[in-house]
Amino acid sequence: MTTLTKATDEAAARENPARRPRRKVDRLPYLLLLPCLAIIAVLLLWPLGQVVMMSFYKLDSVRQLRGDREWPWVGLANYAQILGDPFFRTVLRNTVLFAVANVALTMVLGTLVGLLLNRLGKKMATFVASCVMLAWATPALTGTIVWKWIFDDTSGLVTWLFNKLPDGLSTTLFGRSDWTGYGWFNDPLLFFGILTLVVVWHSFPFIAVSVLAGLKSVPSELQEAARVDGAGPWRVFWSVTFPMLRPVFGILVVLSTIWDFKVFTQQFVLAGGTQDRSTFMLSIYSYAEAFSPPPKYGLGSAIAVILTVILLVVTALYVRMVLRQEDES
């Protein structure tokens, strides 16, 4: 009788959802997350909120920031001024082109190195991975100073190598034989080339190690079966390996995009400050507007908010793509 009553109650609960027993919510996971959420709120959300708030005011002095003077409210005027400035479109173009080129080069080089590490023996792979990770572990400031010395116009390694070329060959190829005093960072295109070299050198080790970790999870039987069917290395990678690592590549592309959009230290050091506006990107443009005399903290904050919105849109598009793939699978 008891079993029959229980079965009847379960059937009634299925027919009437209101009669279903409420599940007890376990609050312990949320309580454990509270310290982490509090730290994120203090270190990230509160400063971000301050920047957003400052973007709606006209702030052009330190006294205003300190509260000695009232903040003049301007609403969306800072955003209208930035978005209506033709120079902003140039900066945005520089940022997008730089990010696209760097993401592509970083992903390709990192993937190739990851595939190489996966083919090496255990000891050799450990040695090569340790050497590669030195670039990732080097602080951006330290690494950029080294690269700036390499391209120094008097005692740099690149200048020395070009001076070692035969005069006739150097004149024929480049139109000059003496490279002492040549400003490697003065031409915008050459500057972005060197900046790309520095950023890719610093970024590809993380991609390589991440791809290597993903390759370890790919069943070797699938790759071996593709080789037995006559597939070459490229076909095996594109038809077997890449589909299984697509989520890994997606995350790496988003992270690389965010990092390359926010490049600041390398550009600031190589350019020697904010004097060369032809090479500006969004990060250094925001800094220059906020802190170069006369300071315009409101405009700088507005540029920073625009940059944050762009990165949030990129991240949202990726999350939507991932959810769509999960639904289709």
Rank of each mutant, 00 (worst) to 15 (best):
L44Y: 06
A135Y: 11
D153C: 03
R19M: 12
V128R: 02
L190G: 14
V52I: 13
W73A: 09
E289H: 09
V108P: 02
T8N: 11
R89G: 14
L43C: 13
W149R: 04
I310D: 06
R93L: 12
I40H: 13
S203N: 12
L32N: 09
P293T: 10
F261I: 04
F204K: 10
L311F: 04
P86V: 09
R176F: 09
A135I: 07
R19T: 08
R320A: 11
T126A: 14
S177R: 10
L197K: 02
A77Q: 14
V253G: 15
W149H: 12
G298I: 01
E15A: 14
N163M: 13
E15F: 01
P29W: 02
A137L: 14
V305W: 10
P293Q: 13
R235G: 05
M281C: 06
L43G: 02
F192K: 11
V254C: 10
V91Q: 04
W184A: 12
T95N: 13
R27D: 01
V198D: 01
D187N: 15
D68T: 01
T241H: 05
R324N: 03
R63Y: 14
V253N: 07
L105F: 10
D152R: 07
F162Q: 12
S203D: 07
L43F: 14
M54T: 08
G232A: 05
G181R: 04
L4W: 02
R69C: 00
V240I: 08
T3C: 00
M1K: 07
P17H: 05
L311R: 02
Y285H: 15
P205K: 04
A41S: 15
V248P: 02
